[in-house]
Design a protein around this nucleic acid. Structure first.
Length: 581
DNA sequence: GCCGTTTTCGGCCCGACTGTTTTCAGTCG
């Protein structure tokens, strides 16, 4: 069910963690991490590579290539199994708690025999961590806070993980005979940022063949329920998937019902009741006679309720019903509207692929323009220099001449320092086509300082886009504590766009913050922040999030033709004129 | 364990912050 590259990546990451937990060589662990990342981001399917092919992947040498080959041939990696047998799985799980790394996880296991999050919680409540060397009251507080963050995420998975599984299942079921329609519904269809369980819907006359095939899918770990209308499984990764088979005639009603959200469905059912109708997953009926009115398509059902078809990404009871009744639903931005990507990396800094490969991949996706924005020197771990970035610019200009259909922009991702200043003097920045600026450290300055910091960055005439504006990481790190209304107002005033970072671990800004920012007249840029060609495909999640924020193509600067985009980028540099669109 | 070489070892991203410590270990980006 999972791409072999990702399986291998996960195994190598696990090995790296276990090396650290067992006190092994930190450089060895890093070597495995780097190889894991490179394989995860590698364009070719590793299961189709031989040892020589594997070793062409950066950071994969003889030892790791051999282990990967062994795994691909036998399904096992003995080195990982060895070290697994020494450390209970729960100890590694402890490392998922922010601020709890391998050393502390190890200490908890060795000294207190703690090997799971619940055990750790018990120990915390019984104050058993107090006697442990290196664990003070603040550490306790941080661990509790970290566990809270993780539990808030619950068992939900990032949207891309659910999407990959769902699309594979839909593909498998769609080819069975008797399948008239098949798709995923639920929060995944609404493109929520995390997914609790996946709903798959099939329209067919007979349900049994689909239910049976479903329970036999590779990657099924457990069949939770097996019926004629609904079957639920749990995958080996712990994700629950529900399959529902409806008669072809009920397709629209089923899709509407199982797409949700619950709040949206309550509103639509209320509307039905007011019209002396009844709406269920089987159709829209006369309340009294029970006679079916419509059920075949969502459009028919919404129409009979006096509504236009409502895009799934809006179905959250956030005013979409009222807007629909007024005929004022927004024409949401779509993936096809996106003409360019304005935030991407290469292996000149922390990307995985060289410039040429990133550009080729972008061109294959049909983009009309593409910005390369590697990290600037102040993020010192990336080792950027003036010479390197200028050499890159020359190379970008050369490549630009080669692509007829796609123009290349040379930009950079600046680091917003604690005072709101960025890398390089103004005159150096002026020669970039665009500058993204982002916060990468000093997250806990306090609300006032953080607000000032972001406003200062917006006021910099060379800064065009604020990258991943809150710096949140889903399930790991909350967003910066700042006065967003002040920041949004500053963006609107200075013609600085806010990024909607499409990476599934970020989706930053979030849908709700997009809605808030839009009221200030802010413009947005949906960017992938790609570090490998594969990441360019994350665009769909950024677009989904933009849709959930009710954005139209007009709100998103990278849907604009290049000439208009350039005017937006230039306008800021010339005398700080306000943004226009 | 990988990489590069001035090729077979020595360096590996580096700095800052936090909390605990009393000079530093662990974690993070």
């Amino acid at each position: 069910m999972v791409r072999p590259n990702e399986e291998v990546e996960a195994l190598l990451r696990e090995y790296a963690d276990l090396v650290l937990i067992t006190g092994g060589d930190a450089f060895k662990a890093r070597a495995y991490e780097k190889a894991a990342r490179a394989i995860g981001g590698h364009h070719a399917d590793v299961s189709k590579l031989d040892a020589a092919g594997l070793r062409e992947i950066p950071n994969v040498g003889r030892s790791i290539a051999d282990k990967v080959i062994q795994y691909l041939q036998t399904g096992r990696m003995p080195a990982v199994e060895d070290v697994r047998s020494k450390v209970p799985a729960g100890v590694r799980q402890l490392m998922a708690i922010p601020t709890l790394g391998p050393r502390k996880a190890m200490a908890l296991y060795e000294d207190l025999h703690i090997s799971s999050v619940p055990e750790l919680l018990d120990a915390l409540h019984e104050e058993r961590l107090r006697d442990l060397k290196g664990f003070g009251p603040k550490t306790e507080e941080n661990i509790l806070h970290g566990i809270g963050l993780m539990q808030a995420a619950g068992d939900r998975v990032p949207v891309n993980v659910a999407m990959d599984v769902a699309e594979e299942i839909v593909a498998e079921l769609s080819v069975l005979s008797g399948c008239e329609s098949c798709t995923y519904a639920g929060s995944l269809r609404r493109m929520r940022e995390t997914i609790g369980d996946v709903d798959v819907l099939v329209a067919a006359g007979r349900s049994a063949p689909f239910m049976d095939a479903f329970t036999r899918l590779p990657g099924t770990a457990e069949v939770i329920a097996h019926g004629m209308k609904k079957t639920s499984i749990r995958t080996t990764k712990g994700l629950q998937i529900d399959l529902r088979v409806v008669p072809p005639d009920s397709w629209g009603a089923g899709l509407q019902y199982f797409t949700g959200s619950k709040a949206h469905n309550i509103r639509t059912r209320e509307m039905a009741v007011h019209r002396k109708l009844k709406l269920s997953e089987y159709g829209l009926f006369h309340a009294e006679s029970g006679k079916k009115i419509v059920s075949q398509s969502e459009e028919e059902i919404y129409a009979r309720l006096g509504l236009p078809w409502i895009p799934p990404t809006l179905r959250e009871d956030r005013g979409e019903i009222a807007a629909g009744l007024r005929g004022e639903l927004p024409a949401l931005v779509t993936e096809a509207d996106i003409r360019g990507d304005l935030h991407t990396h290469t292996d000149l800094t922390d990307g995985l692929a060289p410039l040429d490969e990133m550009v080729e991949a972008a061109a294959r996706r049909g983009l009309r323009y593409y910005a390369i924005t590697d990290h600037a020197p102040n993020l010192s771990m990336q080792r950027m220099t003036d010479e390197k970035v200028l050499a890159q610019r020359e190379r970008v200009r050369e490549l630009d001449g080669r692509h007829r259909k796609m123009r290349l922009l040379h930009g950079t991702e600046l680091n917003i320092d604690p005072d709101g200043n960025v890398d390089w003097p103004q005159e150096f920045l002026r020669d970039f086509d665009l500058c993204v600026a982002s916060v990468h450290s000093h997250f806990h300055q306090g609300r006032d300082a953080l607000t000032r910091r972001l406003v200062t960055a917006c006021e910099n005439p060379e800064v065009n886009i604020i990258g991943h504006p809150t710096t949140r990481l889903l399930g790991k790190r909350p967003g910066l504590d700042m006065d967003l209304d002040v920041v949004f107002a500053a963006c609107a005033r200075t013609g600085t766009a806010l990024e909607i970072n499409a990476h599934p671990d970020r989706l930053d800004l979030s849908d709700e913050l997009i809605l808030r920012a839009k009221r200030y007249g802010v413009k947005f840029a949906v960017n992938t922040d790609a570090h490998a060609p594969l990441h360019l495909a994350y665009l769909r999640y950024g677009v989904g999030t933009a849709q959930r924020g009710w954005l139209t193509a007009g709100d998103v600067i990278n849907t604009w033709p290049l000439a208009r985009l350039r005017r937006f980028l230039d306008k800021k540099g010339s005398a700080g004129a306000p943004s226009s669109s």
